[in-house]
Write a protein that binds this DNA or RNA. Structure first.
Length: 272
DNA sequence: ATGTCCTCTCTTAGAGGA
């Protein structure tokens, strides 16, 4: 099973491009961020016609997240990250898909830092840490996929010294991300490729993609119970070079099929 | 400071966000 996270930077501005990608790559599960569409302007029919079930949480102008599932209907669990009833941004949706729990997230950018937007980002990270802990307690196989707006290490940015004061790279957010991996969440792209930069984002300025001036900010974190099924992970970076591309590239993880249920204990089993 | 692409509006230019 292949799970992809993709910040599309407007689903409607990107629709022909996105549908082409969907049919050529045929992913099993897709987490989308930055729909930039209100709930009733999401192109549901086009996506269903492409063969995908979908749940989404839209918002006017900004944010917006969706989970797509090939030939199946995602079973929505929640569409809000717990912990702040005042938070009106559409940045989280969670569903049961293909036997796993998929959390699709769009973390706040947080710039400029310091400032209220950065404070909001730190609060959001704390809520994510709390919810991730709950998910671990549940024991369910979980992938937390999305645009984290976090550059985890110096290795994940083309020129670290230029980014030290940026909200994507400030030490507070790197530490919060590291807390997730310390608690057992597996950064699937980095785990699969320890020695490659694996950028997922190149901004539209100054030919960043052509110069490979990128960042790794889109992540697929696997719960310990799911990480045993990690086969490979990577970035469809060529998609960033397409006409009318998003500034992010789709980022994927391949998971082995769930093992068959253990057979019932029988007298023929070897003693131990 | 700038660059680019997207959305929205007190709209066809400018502001805000990323």
């Amino acid at each position: 099973m292949r799970v992809v996270t993709y910040n599309v930077n407007s689903i409607n501005a990107r629709l022909p491009n996105f549908l082409r990608w969907l049919s050529e790559y045929s992913p099993d599960v897709v987490c989308l961020q930055e729909l930039k569409a209100p709930q009733d302007k999401f192109p549901e029919a086009a996506i269903r016609n492409a063969g995908y079930g979908v749940v989404w949480h839209g918002q006017k102008s900004w944010n917006g997240v969706a989970i797509l599932s090939k030939n199946a209907e995602p079973q929505e669990i929640r569409r809000v990250l717990p912990g702040d009833p005042e938070d009106s941004h559409s940045r989280y949706i969670e569903a049961q898909v293909g036997g796993i729990v998929v959390g699709c997230l769009y973390l706040p950018n947080g710039n400029p830092a310091p400032g209220p937007k950065f404070e909001y980002k730190l609060r959001w990270l704390n809520r994510l840490l709390a919810h991730a802990a709950e998910l671990l307690l549940s024991g369910s196989p979980v992938v937390l996929a999305g645009d984290y707006n976090v550059i985890p290490t110096e290795f994940d940015v083309y020129k670290p010294e230029r980014w030290v004061d940026d909200a994507l790279f400030r030490i507070e957010v790197r530490e919060a991300f590291a807390r997730l991996t310390k608690r057992g969440w597996v950064d699937s792209v980095r785990a699969s490729h320890p020695n490659q930069s694996m950028y997922t984002y190149w901004d539209y300025f100054r030919n960043a993609y052509g110069r490979d001036a990128g960042l790794r900010i889109d992540h697929l974190l696997l719960s310990p119970s799911l990480s045993a099924r990690l086969v490979d992970a990577g970035v469809y970076r060529e998609v960033r070079g397409w006409e009318k591309a998003s500034d992010h590239a789709p980022t994927w993880v391949e998971l082995q099929d769930a093992p068959a249920p253990a057979p019932a204990a029988s007298s023929t089993e070897a003693p131990h």
